[in-house]
Simulated assay, not measured.
Amino acid sequence: MNFHYIRNTRTIAMAALLAGAVSACTPESSDKELGPLPTASFTAEPLAGNPNKIVVTSTTPGGFMFEYTDDNNNKATREKDTLSYFQAGEYTIQFTVFTSGGFAKAVKKVTIAQNAKTQDILKGGDMGTDSQQFWTVLNTGGTQTAIRIENGAMHFENTGDSNGAIYQKVSVKAGKSYIFSAKVTGNGASNSWFEIYIDTAVPKQGSDYGGNKYISLNTWAGCGAVKFTGDLAVIGCDGTGKNKNGVMSFTKTGDVYIVVKAGSAGGTLGTGGIVMDDVKFLEEI
């Protein structure tokens, strides 16, 4: 008992000593005042030679932190930065700047006159008769979801608990913008997932696939449980690409894998399963 008492007393004394040291190192109060509240301002101009890129530049004096966001879920954080747009239309850019006096916001509208020039770097996305050669079925272990390309579409079906995937490798370039899209239809699944992964991890036969789940239908998250049809990048309710309309970019040049994984746990993918076609992975030119 005495041993425990002495050890605990020493611990308390040490804590008090450290507290005193921290207190002694606390800087003394200063009479320096905060700066005036800022008035946010910025410019938004098309990039020379590419009207689908908008160069945003802070013109706010004294700014040290910047954020540009828009209604297409683009985001930029440098004092002078660039926002990319694939589709023609009007977009609202909101700018937030921080200075020594606080933060302020400003808004501008920009008009994109035409769709961006792109190329589809995915092969066999039209699900034609020769599409199978570009896709590799992935055995994820356990009961496999049935996956086949037939009649111009990719079909995913099961009658109970299952999992399975199919994938394709593509090469991406740092700094370029990409957009994923795929038409999906179904009659309503239960306790199921239909996921798109876009990641550098190499798929391995016999192992489940994880990594960056970009967009998915997920009945637990609130989508895919009732009859649906549309662009997965838009109607998906789970993943890092949620509400980004399929737009993404990469910080490194190299290979990534587009993995489509579907399955159920305590349910099924629904009558007729889930059908996917017109899959595209567009790269800006």
Score class of each variant (00 low, 15 high):
N245W: 02
D278W: 05
T39K: 11
T253F: 03
T59H: 11
F180G: 02
G246R: 05
P36Q: 12
R7V: 15
I179K: 14
G62E: 11
F180E: 01
A189W: 01
G230E: 10
G89L: 09
G211M: 01
A189K: 02
T271I: 12
P51V: 12
R7H: 08
V55S: 10
D278L: 03
T200I: 04
G101C: 07
E67T: 13
A233V: 07
V55K: 13
G230M: 09
K204S: 04
G160Q: 03
T77F: 10
Y68M: 11
K53C: 13
G230V: 07
A262I: 14
I235K: 01
G272P: 15
S190W: 00
A104R: 00
I215Q: 02
D277F: 05
K252W: 03
V170G: 11
N245I: 01
I93R: 04
K123F: 06
L47W: 09
I274E: 01
G211K: 02
S23Y: 14
V184E: 00
E195I: 14
V260Y: 00
E150W: 09
D31Q: 07
F66E: 05
K108T: 13
D130W: 06
E150H: 10
D208A: 15
T140N: 07
V202L: 05
N163V: 12
V202N: 04
D231M: 12
G102K: 04
